[in-house]
Structures are given as structure tokens and as C-alpha cells.
Design a binder for these strands. Structure first.
Lengths: 231, 231
DNA sequence: TTACTTAGTGTAAACAATACACCTTATCTT
DNA sequence: AAGATAAGGTGTATTGTTTACACTAAGTAA
């Protein structure tokens, strides 16, 4: 009773949009391609899925091979499947996004020869990207904006200890609009998941701000209640 | 300088979750499979993507072949890519969902021999589904709930002319909780995109309710403004 | 005419969102 | 040490939104 699966010359790939926040700018991770097509172009990190790995695993592996980054929590956000999106054949790509703390220590070093280098690039200065990567990026950015309203994604981009002004600057970078300082602070603190630390910012040439930490345990408690209440 | 794409024995498929609303119940469309594996099981309509069609086109074609339904606006919501999700090989599936008016006229008649029949099934009474279709459905339902809050999806499920009570019942079915009649009406009418008709419900054995129509033009105006305002 | 069933309506209270400006504190310069 | 500079940090009044809540009106059926 076995039916045999049809065979097509088609492959899956993964593309990753990795967001970071550095010097008050929102950035994404790009690689310099070392393979045709689009050799030497700047592109989203992406490659083909192997036959024996889940797409989630593939996303992790590929990001690691192309950038040296590991163990970030990536989430799928859209699949792009136009027939001609890849000049050499049918490639359907599942796009993932992740948020990461750029801490200056971590090295960006491709492990695979497929990428010459990997680097952070400000989203506001993006040039033309190969394939449909422009569309992929736009889709991810819209998703990011939307999620900012109902998920604690900002804290994945900031250092462990951060000031309220840094938090606000990040929100402004993602939403692309100015926010009111007093209202922003009032609202953030009202949630109850920000822990004020006995510690001040260091190395600034003006009054140092209080540092805060995101308390995920408290956040989860609040969020769980909401889920229950809203059915 | 041509690089050749790697070849794998892997295929893409599409699975569809089609929601409908009938006799005050939220339903989805299932087919009775006519092929192994899971022959004779009830499953989500789904099949393989051809090599020369976009995944969006494939979704339309497949739904038509398996159910006879055409021209509904489907939207991709998630891609499922675990290695062992299909017992016969590597199949990555892109899941789509759509909303449809069940108007009693339209026939559900598979065009392909792959499905024996197609029928509406209440989401509250779903039995075990083959493959990972249970997971697919759950994901789609969560998405539907979420979208109900920011997109006018209810009106795609209702007949053109509907009463406020019908609208409320639908909301209650999707959100799985009771809503307050006065507050619900107040809020819906406050949006300004519901047009009150000079017409009453017919064929009921009690006081007939006023019929309304969804005014998409007005909705778009309101929605566009919101987009602009919120950056 | 009466009973039944659903349609249709308003207000007060609590809460959330917005608009808005000045004093404080630390550092740096001279 | 005084003053300039730069960001930190704070409260209130207004408006809009959400919630809770119960009765009368209208049509149908017996």
C-alpha cells in the first residue's frame, strides 16, 4: 500500500533576519556572499536545508555556518515561494528572524566558505539586496513592529542592564517615531516586570541613569494570567 | 560561473485550513482521503506543490482540486518542517488559511480522485487528524483569534447581510467566551464601518432584527489612517 | 390576550492614554 | 569653585476607552 512521493528538482532554503541594536541604531546581520549567483553581494544569511534536519535545526545550523553565531532563539515568520525568486531553479525559502544582544565580544566569523564575512548593517541604510531579500527584510520588519506591542522583544536586543532611556530609544528605532518620555516610563514601570537595580550607568559624561533589568519570571506570570483571562 | 543547486529527495506540500460559520458554529473543511497513507481518514485538504507554480497558486489549485472551491483569498500562516512529519519521506508543508461564507449553494465536490469527499466539520468536535494536522489546525486557530482583534475577518465568514447578534455569536465562537451585548454593539457601531440597512431579518419566529452590511470602503479609509498615524 | 423569545437601548465607574514643563544631578570647563 | 552643559527624573489634568449592569419594545405563536 506504499505510495511513493513525487520527485521534483526543488529545494528548501532558510534565510535569516537577525536584528541587533548598537549605538542607538537598529541593525541586521548581513554576509558577503562568496558564491554565485550574486557573488560578493551583501545578502541575508541563508542556505539550503538538508534532507535529514528539521527546518528549525537547519536555521540554527545555517546561521552558525555563515556568521559564527549560535544558540539564538529564531522564529519562523514567512515562507517565500515564487517560482522565479532564485535565478538557478526552484527554491522555496523559509524565513526566520531573531533578536540578539550585540555585545561587542562575540565575533562574526563565517565557518563556511560560502560567506566571506558577516557584519552588522543599519536597517535605515540598507542597499539593494539580492534575490527577494528586500521583501524578506520588509516582511520581517513589519512583524517585528507588530510583535513589539505584545511581546517582550526589546529586552532581547538590549544588554542585561539597561536604562529607561535606552529602552525608549530602542522602541523609537523600531516604531520609527518619537515617544513621550514621561508616559513611556510610567507605562513601562506600570507593567511590573522591570527590576530597578542599585546601580548606575557608568562612563557617561553627565548624570548617570539608573539601570534596570527585565524580570522574565514576573513577565511570564503576568502574561500567563492574561492568556487565561482572555480565553 | 553557474553553480548547480543541490538535489534532494524532498517535496513541498500545501495544507489548507478553511474556516466557515454555519448554524452558529465555527467549522473547518475536511476531506476524506482516498490515498495512502491515512487512506479514508479525515484530513485537512492538502497536496504537493508543482515545480512551476508559486506556493500561493498551488494553494488555490490544491484547494480547488480537493474541494471544488475557488477564488478564495488564502493566506499563508506557518510552515511545518519536521523531518518525520510525513511517514513516507521528507515533506515540508506550507499551511494556508482562509475564511469563507458557507452559503449552502456551493457544492463541495472534489475534482481530484485524491479526495473521496469534502465536508464541513465543527472545530469543537474535531477528532484525531493524520500527520501533524492537529498541530496545523491549532496554529491556525490561534492565528485566527489573534487576527480577529485587528482585522475585519468576521465579515468574510458571515453572509453579506447579517444581524448584530449573528456577528456577536461569531465573535463568541472564535474567542470561545461570552461577550456583553450592549458593549459589543456599542463598540462595533462606533467603528463606523457597519451600514445599517432598511431591511429586517426574515423567517424567524420572533421579533426580526435589523440587518447590517460591512462597508469595506469605509473600513479601508479608517484603517489607512491608522497606519499613517502609527507610523 | 397572553405568553414567549429575541431586539434594542444608556449610564456610571474604573481604567488607560495623552499632553505637557521644570527641577535635579552629575560631569566638564575655565 | 562657579558656571555651563547634558541628560535624568518626576506629576497632574484631560480625554478617551472599557467595563458592568437590567429593563422595555416588538414581533410571533398559541
Amino acid at each position: 500500500m506504499e505510495t511513493i512521493l513525487p520527485k521534483f528538482d526543488s529545494v528548501f532554503s532558510i534565510d535569516c533576519v537577525i536584528f541587533g541594536f548598537q549605538t542607538n541604531e537598529l541593525k541586521i546581520l548581513l554576509i558577503e556572499r562568496n558564491e554565485e549567483p550574486y557573488k560578493s553581494w551583501h545578502a541575508l544569511p541563508g542556505y539550503f536545508v538538508k534532507n535529514d534536519e528539521s527546518i528549525d535545526d537547519a536555521a540554527e545550523r545555517i546561521l552558525y555556518e555563515l556568521t559564527g553565531l549560535r544558540d539564538l532563539h529564531m522564529e519562523q515568520f514567512h515562507t517565500f515561494g515564487d517560482v522565479d525568486r532564485h535565478p538557478q531553479g526552484r527554491v522555496i525559502t523559509v524565513a526566520y528572524y531573531a533578536l540578539i544582544r550585540i555585545d561587542g565580544q562575540q565575533e562574526l566569523k563565517p565557518v563556511s566558505s560560502y560567506a566571506k564575512s558577516a557584519f552588522w548593517y543599519p536597517v535605515n541604510e540598507l542597499e539593494k539586496l539580492p534575490f527577494d531579500h528586500g521583501k524578506v527584510f520588509e516582511t520581517s520588519f513589519r512583524k517585528l513592529r507588530r510583535r513589539l506591542h505584545y511581546q517582550p522583544i526589546a529586552f532581547e536586543l538590549l544588554p542585561e542592564k539597561f536604562t529607561l532611556t535606552q529602552l525608549q530609544t530602542l522602541y523609537e528605532a523600531i516604531l520609527n517615531k518619537k515617544l513621550d518620555k514621561r508616559n513611556f516610563r510610567k507605562k513601562m514601570l506600570s507593567y511590573g516586570f522591570l527590576k530597578e537595580l542599585d546601580e548606575k550607568q557608568k562612563g557617561v559624561s553627565y548624570r548617570a541613569a539608573t539601570l534596570y533589568r527585565f524580570d522574565r519570571r514576573k513577565y511570564n506570570k503576568i502574561f500567563q494570567n492574561e492568556l487565561t483571562v482572555n480565553g
